[in-house]
Design a binder for these strands. Structure first.
Lengths: 217, 217
DNA sequence: ACCTGAACACCGTTCAAGT
DNA sequence: ACCTGAACACCGTTCAAGT
């Protein structure tokens, strides 16, 4: 036995984290294992399946915590924060997990855990906000790191950016800001927490009227 | 003048809608225009820029409505519903728009409109939930249409699906369900509306205590 | 069971050259 | 201003064949 399925998945994750989803090709994963590309198809029927297995691996540790007392503590907020952290821990992890989860929508372990705590609609709302926010965070970070501050898609914005000074060093030095606008992505982590709070407040608001006394009519 | 930038963007959208993001290559867009692939680089610096322009086009019509009375009516719920509809109207539209928006995070027209109505955090929460839900919806629909009901990534599930009967017609006939589980994606449109309501309730709950009389201590 | 080697039909992007 | 033609360094997947 030379390589197992687990080896292939691990190699895939290494390539993903190092090169990003865009460059995570079957050929590169094969090279990471020192094997021909065609060898991968002995372990996995296609690239999509490999990505799905990688997604499972990324969220493996995310789940309801078992406290020292033995009771399974279920905190929806912590679950979402953990999920987000697990995805952000590997490059393009949010894309990979969100896509794989959408494929088998409704059959996700994390969504099930959430549903037990806050119901079906609450679970889906929390989950999809978490995916949306994580993907946005990761994409934006990559764009920033790439020096894509010059918005290449908008001619109006690109125009006032000015050309790069010739003979610039080609490091990741991003000292020349395009516009003096304050960073619009100020603090994405904090913004995630506040979004979570809004949703949880909405769930609490929906649950309360049924339990507490209200001025009926 | 043979082809304008607008022609290229329009051709890109036609290819995207017909073939999906995966198959929306520069070469196919060029073919759609009856032109060599290299000709596109006269209009656009790279594929990513073309996709960003396509994203702008997809959300062009989404914005605060101007009522007959002349006042700009701002309904955050309708804004999100409109945005979702615009994205779902073209194949893989949610992916394209979400990615392009993340690139220039915080500088989105729709997010600005939302922010005026429900504040910065509310806007971002609504927007990213809308992206997450739309992407999930679209990915799941494609998976279902593809007949990917056989979960190709999970050996345990794939095992009890059984082989396809030989000599089957190769249409989109999906009459052989894999498992008798009720459709987990029951109604994605309704689920979006309920998620929106949860978030809006959370925003209302946060705003109310500051305005109405509360039993102080 | 796991892998090689060769092949097929593709990619994005660059660049000199045409009109 | 807009395009061609050729080239470069890549893709995912299949398949016969090896051990």
């Amino acid at each position: 036995m030379r390589n197992s399925l687990a080896d292939v998945v691990a190699a895939g994750l290494r390539v993903l984290d190092a090169q990003g989803l865009e460059n995570c090709s079957m050929r590169r994963v094969a090279a990471e294992l020192g094997v021909q590309p065609s060898a991968l198809y002995h372990h996995v029927p296609n690239k999509q399946s490999l990505l799905a297995l990688m997604a499972d691996e990324i969220v493996l540790g995310v789940g309801p915590r078992v406290t020292a007392a033995g009771a399974a503590a279920g905190d929806p907020r912590r679950l979402c924060v953990d999920l987000r952290e697990a995805m952000l821990a590997v490059r393009d992890g949010a894309d990979v997990v969100a896509t794989a989860t959408a494929f088998r929508l409704g059959r996700s372990r994390v969504e099930d855990s959430l549903a037990q705590l806050v119901g079906f609609d609450g679970a889906r709302t929390l989950l999809l906000f978490t995916f949306g926010h994580a993907q946005s965070t990761q994409t934006h970070r990559q764009a920033a790191a790439l020096g894509a501050l010059v918005d290449i898609a908008d001619p109006a914005v690109a125009a006032d950016a000015g050309p790069a000074a010739p003979g610039e060093p080609e490091g990741v030095d991003v000292t020349r800001p395009v516009a003096p606008i304050s960073d619009p992505a100020a603090d994405l982590d904090a913004s995630f927490g506040r979004g979570l709070d809004i949703i949880l407040a909405g769930l609490a608001a929906a649950a309360r009227p049924a339990r507490t006394a209200l001025p009926v009519r």
